[in-house]
Design a protein around this nucleic acid. Structure first.
Lengths: 116, 116
DNA sequence: GCTATATTTCGATTATCGTCGAAATATAGG
DNA sequence: CCTATATTTCGACGATAATCGAAATATAGC
């Protein structure tokens, strides 16, 4: 991860609405949520939601995929982990302080009965 | 951790200069660095540096302590860990995806020969 | 108390971000 | 192709953030 990229990711998260969206998506997992579902949960006007989703996309923190008429958004877990790693890189000069993160990879999505 | 607080912390990090400062401090560990040292390493005018340090302080990501004429800044590692935890809270609905972080506590500072 | 060093506060300027209505685009189904 | 639904693009306005010089404050040593 590069500094500019990390700043973009952090900037995307540094907003109340976007952080809520992000956390919704984190909880949801790789399957993601449709724009409409998110708009419903957070009670946002559609144009505002799109704006924020674009920010998350451009920052590389979320992915987008179409399913029929709806667009599903999901967290890019690899990017999330990379960001964590970047923030804590070489913490305490490598001494035995071992602060925070153990990056790992999210499991691939699994089939479900109903989608959101 | 609360949402507003997390937004403040992320906003503090969402800036090229502040992210550099933060990472310098993360690497340095609990001992911290003096304002002057940071200004030297990043080649910043003093008033700009103060501005950014205040942001980190207000966001609760850094601590300040005076040592003679100099002010030392250090990362608040507990706050850093809390932020990570907040971002990944209940990831994937608690299913066995286990994405990222294992919060832990930074060790307390240890005595050193020379300070910076 | 005077001088030097370290850092902060103040103030003005410029640039970027957030909001949201209205109109445009994409997909699905008859 | 016409209608309905889902989402995005455009545009304009108000609000917030970043920069940095100059002056002010804090500490130390003589």
């Amino acid at each position: 991860m590069e500094g500019k990229h990390a700043v973009a990711a952090l900037g995307a998260l540094a907003h109340a609405t976007r952080l809520e969206i992000f956390r919704l998506l984190v909880q949801r997992g790789p399957e993601g949520l449709s724009a409409g579902t998110i708009a419903g949960k957070l009670d946002l006007p559609p144009s505002s939601l799109t704006f924020h989703l674009q920010q998350l996309l451009h920052a590389g923190l979320a992915t987008q995929r179409r399913l029929s008429r709806q667009l599903f958004y999901a967290v890019d877990f690899a990017a999330m982990n990379a960001l964590m790693a970047y923030l804590t890189e070489n913490c305490c000069g490598g001494e035995a302080c071992i602060p925070v993160c153990r990056p790992a990879v999210a499991k691939p999505p699994r089939a479900r009965r109903k989608s959101a």
